[in-house]
Design a protein around this nucleic acid. Sequence first.
DNA 1: TGCGCCTCAGTGACATTGTCACCAACGACC
DNA 2: GGTCGTTGGTGACAATGTCACTGAGGCGCA
Lengths: 233, 233
Amino acid sequence: MRGGCGVRAMTGRETPWVERFPGLSRLAQETKDLLLSKSSIVEVPSGTVIFGPGKSPENMLFLLEGTVRVQQVSDTGREIVLYRIHSGESCVLTTACLLAYEDYAAEGIAETAVRAVAVPRKVFDDLVGQSKAFRDFVFAAFSKRITDLFLMVDEVAFQRMDVRLGQRLLALADAAGAIATTHQKLSIELGTAREVVSRQLQEFQRRGWVQQSRGKVRICDRRALENLVEHHG
Amino acid sequence: MRGGCGVRAMTGRETPWVERFPGLSRLAQETKDLLLSKSSIVEVPSGTVIFGPGKSPENMLFLLEGTVRVQQVSDTGREIVLYRIHSGESCVLTTACLLAYEDYAAEGIAETAVRAVAVPRKVFDDLVGQSKAFRDFVFAAFSKRITDLFLMVDEVAFQRMDVRLGQRLLALADAAGAIATTHQKLSIELGTAREVVSRQLQEFQRRGWVQQSRGKVRICDRRALENLVEHHG
DNA sequence: TGCGCCTCAGTGACATTGTCACCAACGACC
DNA sequence: GGTCGTTGGTGACAATGTCACTGAGGCGCA
């Protein structure tokens, strides 16, 4: 689900950004034109807090490039990553969400440099009213988010930590199996304590599944991790 | 699942059901009329599985009476209650949800006898298109559900079990402090094991906060439980 | 009444995970 | 070299989850 190439070429007018969103390419030309004319492209550097407690976004974002990490910050100080928005996906829910309920504890952070299309709330609302195709796109986004959150609750409540860590390692690894992250960051991914991650990684290393160095993890036996995840998940 | 009856208590035209939903009473009269004419009232007995794996609802429900419990069933056999829909609330998300993504493991169960208004998918979509007020209602419902799920993840991941049990006891108790439920059912509320609930309740009883008998829990010291919940949650 | 059968709850042993305090290794910087 | 913050390792302990088993209560029925 990542755009990768094509983004650069997008800067020309041969391929308007609308075409890069599977759900939006089906819109009527008139709707696309409205969307294109009333929106603007924003760029934010890596690490920017896009929304958070006391910082509501006024625009709906459609990500062209980069990823946004959404995480819950507990009042106990612990954190957990809820989900990520990748390029080609939209922030539909977060905005609608935060507009209605101000008492939330989640925040969205640009995990990389991000380029996105900002659609003002008003334009968004008009589009939902005018276009059935756009409605379908929006509801599909909401639906996916909610079912994912259902699965997230299930995972946090019932899944073993070694399986969850294995999942994340596989998801975060690049093609060579390398992951540039710390135990601390991995513990936030899973909503657990750093010590737990350290212990699990040591066990994985003892079994020859991964190798560790400061700030890095490398998967040596992808098959074994997949088997762990598959068998118990 | 047929319309028809329900005339019993709904009687007469003095208060159309639309007025009983805070968000809907603001609709234009024309929108209300459309909603009233194109929907039907259904009644389902307690215990009915309204939706679940392999059983998608074709209608959007607005609850007039009763409650629906939505729970996640893990492939490990364990379960956890995600949320409840009370009278005056709508099922917006579940329907939209299940329409788009068939691979879910959540189910909705009528916890009591339920009377509800069934709005066909098509009518719902038209209303979203026509009425800004209806859109606001729908997005507010989605938003509340999503923020609640954020909090749910937070609670499951970080909150102590005694605090969570205390919360549920306070929420489920009637005015006299009585709760008619088993340890097993309480464990499903929290997504934990029965033994854990038994141990916690014993500790609460030892402290004089609750009294237990077969299939029943009675809160003796509501203040103490509130203090537990308040102080650590 | 006594019997069988089911649900409900209690218990102990153990595994997993979370918490806390502390320490050692590493790298950036002066 | 020396200092400092970050990163990761360790052990003790608490909280929670898992498992196997026990017994108490309720209910139908001969």
